[in-house]
Simulated scan of single mutants.
Amino acid sequence: MKGHIRERSPGKWAVVLDLRDPETGKRRRKWHTFTGTKREAQKECARLITTLQGGDYVEPAKETLAQYFERWLEHIRSQVSPRSHERYTEIARKNLAPLLGSVVLTKLRPEQISAAYGKALLSGRRDGKGGLAPRTVHHMHRILRQALGQAVKWRILVRNPADAVDPPKVERLKMRALDAAESAALFAHFRPTRVFIPVVLGTMCGLRRGEVTALRWRSVDWKTGHIEIVESTEQTRKGTRSKETKSGRGRRVALPSFALEELRAHHIRQAEELLKLGVRAASDGYVYTQADGSPVQPNSLTHEFTRILAQATHLPRVRFHDLRHSHATQMLASGIHPKIAQERLGHSSIAITLDLYSHVLPGMQEDAAAKVDAALRAAIGKTAG
């Protein structure tokens, strides 16, 4: 197997590889364009010959990154949720393609990717009103890296150029957790509304928005005071669909007595409300519904929560998801073991719980140190006596 270089213009080289067609035995040539010094071109020629001999050679192609995105998006359609696929498609087509889509995939370089990120931060908004947030550019990098990683698996690329690029630093979103007094005030404000039960489930049980809208009465165990979280709802452009929980497995959550009492009262009110409409309540009905018993979309719950909260000047402005954070923070601050918090929240591992709520742990460590100290001092006192 041989190869040589030809100078096309100053700094521009053609790397020519001589090889045999495995089927016909006829001689073929593969041409690669290279920019650099003669010595660098010779090294590139030697590298390509080595990849040919090792079976890692990738033939040059003229497919652009924008064209490749379409193939890749179709490939991953069955591997991610519809909502995730919508997000991937939006970022690939509307954020990445305008910046890098015209580049031939096999010629994409790390410096081009880095420059594209810089441009996105400076002037990447589609409405022309400035740059994108670092978090958005970080999502762009994650999707581009994943797409190019597949190109390596398909042997279109030898290596992933996005691996050599560092995305912008993203500050972690600050969580706003309500204390017990604020939670009580929140309950009082929402009690006259239909969103009261979702607020209770979020604050006292740590349910996610999609888990609230997917909860059915058959999942409520009145005898033991538990609810089974077995599914969630996801809203896409095509409508709302049921899916498994975020961790991929169900969980059993014990209801505080207050939440159990409110659920019982809500169950009765809902049955009476439906009876007036000529509808009989069913065990597979949803806990949180519209007036006619039909399910509520996750986005509608968020919008209604935000609208009602805005009417209270004495309450902090929080997201519905912050109710979940409030539940976790109050549990850990009360000395509940993080493993129990993980199980109630439905995190896939305790490491996620500890990482998200590490700000609560210093106080817990001080409390633990004080308890150990008190126990040892008591034991020492008895020994001395």
Results as ranks from 00 to 15, higher is better:
285 G>S: 08
241 R>C: 07
136 T>M: 08
169 K>T: 14
378 A>F: 05
185 A>P: 00
100 L>C: 07
256 P>E: 01
337 H>C: 07
224 T>G: 08
95 N>V: 02
285 G>D: 14
89 T>F: 09
148 L>Y: 00
94 K>Q: 14
16 V>F: 08
85 H>Y: 10
134 P>S: 07
326 S>Y: 02
51 T>Y: 11
22 P>E: 06
179 D>V: 08
338 P>H: 06
6 R>K: 15
261 E>F: 05
203 T>W: 01
46 A>G: 08
13 W>M: 05
65 L>Y: 06
292 D>K: 12
202 G>C: 05
9 S>N: 12
87 R>M: 14
138 H>D: 12
185 A>N: 04
290 Q>Y: 04
315 L>D: 06
61 A>C: 06
295 P>M: 03
51 T>M: 13
347 H>R: 04
222 W>Y: 10
333 A>V: 09
338 P>Y: 05
75 H>I: 06
139 H>G: 00
279 V>N: 07
24 T>S: 15
372 V>T: 14
110 P>A: 09
150 Q>G: 01
340 I>T: 15
16 V>E: 12
294 S>K: 13
92 A>C: 15
210 G>I: 04
78 S>W: 06
358 S>H: 12
243 K>L: 11
282 A>H: 09
142 R>V: 11
16 V>K: 06
108 L>P: 09
112 Q>Y: 07
281 A>C: 00
304 E>H: 13
279 V>G: 02
58 V>E: 03
306 T>C: 00
314 H>E: 13
197 I>A: 04
381 G>N: 06
281 A>N: 00
41 A>H: 11
22 P>I: 04
320 F>V: 07
22 P>F: 03
244 E>C: 04
361 L>V: 11
231 E>H: 09
332 L>N: 01
123 S>V: 00
362 P>L: 10
373 D>Q: 14
373 D>A: 14
174 K>H: 13
229 I>W: 00
54 G>S: 10
381 G>E: 04
7 E>R: 15
308 I>R: 05
357 Y>E: 02
